[in-house]
């Protein structure tokens, strides 16, 4: 049942995105991979792909609010827990194509520009994924508690926060190499642990919120 609900959400997301959107993403992918050297990798992986990976809660909330998806779910033979689990699963499945696009981008970018090591790309990808997991979990929970506007504003706020941080680092040329003095793989493992913990807590919160809202 959870998979069925997730399948429905993924299909709605897929159908909802226009061809223009896919073409626009493909063009940006190619421009950043082929034409932009030093800043291209972080711009695509950390901003473009991550922003796209975290749109699911907003778009699925829109489907719930504007097209009675909420009511439809309630009419199905499934529990509240399954409905929430289905939504979480869908949101993370929706991330997969963008997640796959990251190593493809890295290979092309690295072949064209040869400015970073494979390890650097890998760390960038994992860091972006950790951020995407956390933002998605938080936004999903909020989408069960609040209206469409709140979810959209929160999404924009979080993305703007990342863009701002990115611009500050890039434009002020802040040296982040001090991070390399830390055990960065341990840092990434801790990041994933944090992401899974946040997701677990958000899931439990979302189930409780959903049960209360139904009544």
């Amino acid at each position: 049942m959870t998979f069925g609900l997730a399948y429905r959400d993924v299909l709605i997301f897929w159908r909802r995105n226009s061809k223009k959107n896919y073409i626009y993403n493909a063009v940006l992918f190619l421009v950043l991979a082929l034409a932009v050297g030093r800043f291209g990798a972080a711009t695509y992986i950390f901003l473009m792909a991550m922003a796209q990976m975290t749109t699911a809660p907003v778009m699925l909330k829109e489907a719930d609010v504007n097209h009675n998806g909420w009511l439809f779910s309630l009419s199905l033979p499934c529990s509240e827990r399954e409905i929430v689990r289905g939504r979480f699963l869908a949101a993370y499945l929706i991330q997969l194509p963008y997640l796959i696009s990251m190593p493809v981008f890295s290979v092309i970018h690295s072949l064209v520009h040869r400015c970073y090591t494979p390890e650097y790309y890998m760390k960038l990808m994992l860091a972006a994924w950790i951020c995407a997991i956390i933002i998605t979990a938080v936004n999903l929970t909020v989408s069960f508690a609040a209206g469409m506007d709140v979810v959209a504003v929160l999404y924009m706020f979080l993305i703007c926060l990342f863009v701002l941080g990115y611009l500050i680092v890039m434009l002020a040329d802040i040296d982040l190499t001090f991070l390399f003095f830390l055990n960065e793989w341990l840092l990434i493992a801790a990041g994933f642990a944090l992401a899974f913990l946040v997701t677990g807590i958000c899931y439990l919160l979302a189930v409780n919120i959903y049960k209360k809202q139904k009544r």
Binding site: R16, F72, S75
Partner: peptide, 30 residues
């Protein structure tokens, strides 16, 4: 109970972006 009830409600339409052919794929999983 819910698996044995068919509900048709005004306003409770399928998502407008889905194709009619998608409905079968979704419903057989639900």
């Amino acid at each position: 109970i819910k698996s044995r009830i068919g509900l048709v409600m005004d306003g409770l339409d399928q998502n407008p972006f889905l194709y009619v052919r998608d409905i079968d794929k979704i419903m057989r999983r639900l």
